[in-house]
C-alpha cells in the first residue's frame, strides 16, 4: 500500500527553482534511499514533505504530496502539526544540534508520547525507557536523566531515533542520519534503523549522499541531480546496471578496497549552481554520452526494464528522431 506519494513537485525559493518536477512514492514498510550530492535538492525535498519549507524561505509552486490519500500541501499549518511528529517523523543530520541541550534526553522522548498519544508523564517515561532498551541503549533508566552533552554522538543519534519512533509514526524521514558519525557507529545506527523500521512496518525515506548506505540498507532508491530525479528503481537493479550516465559515474567514482590504482573515474566539471542550470538536460555538460538533443530538451522519465525509470534521452526512443 502506498504510504506517501510525491507528484510533480516544484519548489521555489524566490526566483530560483531548486526542485523541478520531482515524483516518487514509498510503500509501507519500505526503505527508500534518496541519493544526491550537494545542490541536488534532496534536503529540500525532506523539508517539503514535513511542511517546514517556509522556515528556509521557500514555497511550493505546484505538485501534490499524498499521504494516505490526503494532500499534505493543501493542509493548514494546524492540521499539518497533527501529522508532523505523530504520523511523519523526522531524524535530522546533526544529533548535536537537534537535541535540546536544556532538557534531559529521556524527557525529550517522553514529550512526544505525551503530546501526540496523550499519555501521562508516568506512562510516557516507562514507554520511553522501553523504547531505549529496544534501541540497545544500556542502562536506560540512568541515560534517561542525562543531558545531550554527556552522551556520545552515536548515543545521541539513537536518542534522536527514539524521539522519532516515540509517537508511533507511519513514516520516518531521515536526513543524512549517520553522516556525522564514525564508521563503526554508523554501521550500528543504520542496522538499528533497518531493524526498527522493518519490525514495525514503518516506511523510511533515507536521504544520503553515500551510495554505500543505499546499497546496504535500502530497498528502492532515487537518484537526484540538480533538482530532478535522474533515475529510480530497486537498489539491486540500479547498482548492477545503472542506466543514467550520472548514476553510472557516481558509482564509479567511489573508491573501494579493490579498485586498482589510477582506475578511479572522476566526473569532470562541477554540480551546477541553482542560479544557472543548463538548458535541456541538467547533466549534459558533464555527460560522456550527451546527444545533440540533450542541450535543448529536458528528458522525460521513462520506464526502463523491471521497475526502473530513467530520465535520459538515451532511453527515450521517441527522442532519437530529434538528434
Amino acid at each position: 500500500m502506498t504510504l506517501l506519494s510525491v507528484e510533480n513537485l516544484h519548489v521555489r525559493f524566490g526566483a530560483l527553482h531548486p526542485i523541478d518536477g520531482v515524483s516518487f512514492s514509498i510503500e509501507q514498510g519500505e526503505i527508500l534511499g534518496v541519493v544526491g550530492e550537494s545542490g541536488s535538492g534532496k534536503s529540500i525535498t525532506a523539508l517539503t514533505i514535513l511542511g517546514l519549507l517556509h522556515l528556509q524561505g521557500g514555497e511550493v509552486d505546484s505538485g501534490r504530496i499524498l499521504f494516505n490519500g490526503i494532500d499534505l500541501l493543501r493542509l493548514v499549518e494546524r492540521e499539518r502539526c497533527s501529522y508532523r511528529g505523530k504520523q511523519i517523523a523526522f531524524i535530522s543530520q546533526n544529533p548535536m544540534t537537534s537535541l535540546d541541550p536544556l532538557f534531559c534526553v529521556g524527557d525529550q522522548i517522553a514529550q512526544g508520547l505525551v503530546i501526540h498519544l496523550g499519555k501521562s508523564w508516568f506512562e510516557a517515561r516507562a514507554r520511553a525507557i522501553e523504547l531505549m532498551r529496544d534501541l540497545r541503549i544500556p542502562n536506560p533508566e540512568v541515560v534517561y536523566d542525562q543531558f545531550p552533552h554527556q552522551l556520545s554522538g552515536g548515543l545521541k543519534q539513537r536518542i534522536a531515533i527514539a524521539i522519532a519512533l516515540s509517537a508511533e509514526p507511519r513514516l520516518i524521514v531521515a536526513d543524512e542520519p549517520t553522516t556525522a558519525l564514525d564508521v563503526t557507529v554508523q554501521a550500528q545506527v543504520l542496522h538499528l534503523l533497518h531493524r526498527m523500521t522493518r519490525t514495525r512496518g514503518i516506511g523510511l525515506i533515507l536521504i544520503t549522499h553515500d551510495m554505500g548506505v543505499v546499497a546496504q540498507i535500502c530497498d528502492r532508491m532515487i537518484v537526484m541531480y540538480a533538482g530532478t530525479i535522474v533515475e529510480a528503481g530497486k537498489v539491486e537493479e540500479v547498482f548492477t546496471g545503472p542506466r543514467h550516465p550520472y548514476t553510472r559515474a557516481l558509482i564509479n567514482c567511489i573508491p573501494r578496497v579493490e579498485t586498482q590504482p589510477g582506475a578511479l573515474m572522476a566526473i569532470p566539471g562541477i554540480v551546477p549552481n541553482v542560479t544557472d542550470y543548463p538548458p535541456g538536460c541538467r547533466f549534459h555538460p558533464r555527460c560522456p554520452r550527451a546527444l545533440p538533443c540533450c542541450s535543448i530538451l529536458p528528458p522525460r522519465t521513462v520506464e526502463c526494464g523491471d521497475e526502473v525509470s530513467v530520465a535520459c534521452h538515451l532511453y527515450d526512443p521517441s527522442d532519437w528522431t530529434l538528434s
Binding site: 564508521v183 554508523q186 554505500g212 543505499v214 546496504q216 539491486e236 547498482f239 548492477t240 558509482i251 573501494r256
Partner: peptide
C-alpha cells in the same frame, strides 16, 4: 564496517 556500495554484498 565500511558500507560497500554493492547491494549484493550486504
Amino acid at each position: 564496517s565500511a558500507l560497500i556500495p554493492d547491494p549484493r554484498r550486504r
